[in-house]
Design a binder for these strands. Structure first.
Lengths: 340, 340
DNA sequence: TTGTATGCGTTATCAT
DNA sequence: ATGATAACGCATACAA
């Protein structure tokens, strides 16, 4: 029945040592302003001497606040998320909160179950690229503050990485290089970011007066990219924008395998800048600032936590084109080489 | 004071509806075997009707078990850790536990503080590549079960990725390719894996009858790799093993920048296989199976949790060489080109 | 400003 | 097999 924690001092021990009541010790930590300054210091000294730390579980039972934030991501192995998680954890830590991490493997059912499992312990949720239904999200939101990342549900605070700027700059960049027919390689169908990027490519191409082809996609990983290479070649586009960097690298591999050179034969642009300049050839990409998104999401959540009546917020984070080594002038004259 | 959870039914409501005492409701969930089968079903039915779920916080306060595992990593942005974290979370989830994640930015002080903050809520710890002192780790271990990953402290259960096999295979591979002078590019000085790999390179080189040069290093990132390129060239080694893949990529960048070609002029091998075959040129590397390590660590922790008297365990995970495209025969005759 | 008393939801001890 | 009740550690309404 007792705590399994050997020799963990409680408020009672501190009270005895400091010669005050347990209520005073409690106040010395949770509401020091109502106490005389010297009692606060006296109590704190006693606490320090014993190594006393308030027990968050007991606090939670009494206040309903657990000091825990939950963050759910669809795939931690996707390099887009780790920086976001790191930033979120750091922000939470600064606010004195700890972070519960859940990985759903893109499975909506698993996400829903996990959220249910965590609800009684978490003060709030950050749902990154959530795959749950709008109804499920709203149901959760009435029980706990929720902040969405890259998912746009009216009435739920959300931070969205707005690819529009970066994609437009990308298309203009490609147009300037003489490309007149470009392709968009889609990512997960349910992904908000995918829908947004697809639309941005389409519109920007119209504006720039060039042709845009939409190539289908389901998942976003290296394998899928490899397999998308033939379709890209068939499309006869001379440049492609991929849903993200991982997909782009897969495409690059598939193309190289078929003797097609990037960027000499086909220009390639990724999204999210997850690999930075860490690989050769360095990928031209649309930077997403995932870490900023993680920090912003936690900030939003903290606001909601201290003021549940906070108005609906929709934070848009900009993106920008980073030109590196996978874009070049459109191949002139000769057609793209095909394997035998 | 009250719970912030709207309309969360408690054991009392269920007891009233089922016409039993609160104790019986409790037993119906935590220890059903001592109850008559029909009462269990009756209570469960009442609970289901109300949507009752046991409150983990209250359980924790009473039992001392929180249903929470904490995992601390030095740098979540390092691609070695995300798969490990994902596997650990999955394993914990299967066991009905949630995962608290902490990121320390390689800062021992921050790690220590974080561990202190989390101790009252976590049932146990997985410390990945911990930077804390041995004493700090032991102190923690008397309060909570602890499992280490890639840190070797006697008496503390630990899982170690044993690079020896993979490194030996690497050195033999290089020797067969005609290399007679190879370099090891070190990583973080306090890293157990670094010490182990360095030693393995040294010994394997001796066995293979070739020369091994140790190049110093402090941190492991792309930048550091770039900056290490000149030293590598100065060493006149024709092949190099880097502490990890990220460092290797940085080195590759630095070399390419100076007009030195990989693998034509210099062969390069990474460690950990964090980028899989996802980049060109695909990196020859020593695979570390980080996900397996994460799963094994949680398994070890679960064992300790149910039996604290479990004997000291030291799990060694093997590694293997994956030959891809960055190793080739030693350049013959001509010396390595240097930039002007 | 500080102390007293009670409740938070559950488990476990001791009865019956 | 089941019920009554005392913890678990803390926060807060109320009293003083």
């Amino acid at each position: 029945m007792a705590s399994n924690d050997p020799a963990a001092p409680t408020i009672t021990n501190v009270a005895a040592l400091a010669g005050v009541s347990r209520a005073t010790v409690s106040r010395a930590f949770s509401n020091p302003r109502v106490l005389r300054a010297d009692t606060v210091t006296r109590v704190r000294a006693a606490a320090a001497e014993l190594g006393y730390v308030p027990n968050p579980t007991a606090q939670a039972l009494s206040t309903g606040r657990h000091g825990l934030l939950a963050m759910i991501v669809p795939d931690i192995a996707n390099p887009f998320f780790p920086p976001m998680i790191g930033a979120a954890q750091g922000r939470a830590e600064t606010a004195g909160l700890a972070l519960l991490l859940g990985n759903t493997d893109e499975d909506p059912a698993r996400e829903h179950t996990m959220v249910g499992r965590l609800t009684p312990q978490a003060d709030g949720f950050v749902l990154a690229a959530s795959r749950m239904t709008e109804k499920q999200i709203r149901d959760l939101a009435v029980r706990r503050p929720v902040v969405l990342v890259n998912r746009d549900v009216t009435g739920i605070p959300r931070v969205l990485v707005d690819s529009a700027d970066g994609v437009r700059a990308t298309v203009e960049h490609l147009a300037e290089l003489g490309h007149t027919r470009i392709a968009y390689l889609a990512g997960p169908a349910r992904s908000w970011a995918n829908a947004q990027r697809k639309k941005a490519v389409k519109r920007s191409a119209e504006r720039a007066g060039i042709e845009a082809i939409m190539l289908p996609g389901q998942v976003s990983n290296y394998e899928a990219g490899m397999q998308a290479a033939p379709a890209l070649l068939d499309s006869r586009a001379t440049a492609a924008v991929a849903f993200d960097d991982v997909l782009a690298h897969g495409v690059m591999a598939g193309l190289t395998q078929r003797g097609v050179s990037v960027p000499d034969d086909i220009s390639l642009v990724g999204c999210d800048d997850v690999l930075k300049a860490q690989v050769y050839p360095a990928l031209t990409t649309v930077s997403s600032h995932a870490a900023d998104a993680g920090a912003a999401a936690v900030d939003l959540l903290l606001q909601r936590l201290e003021n549940p009546e906070d108005p609906d917020r929709r934070v848009l984070l900009g993106t920008s084109l980073i030109v590196r080594a996978t874009t070049a002038r459109a191949a002139t004259g000769c057609t793209t080489r095909r394997p035998s």
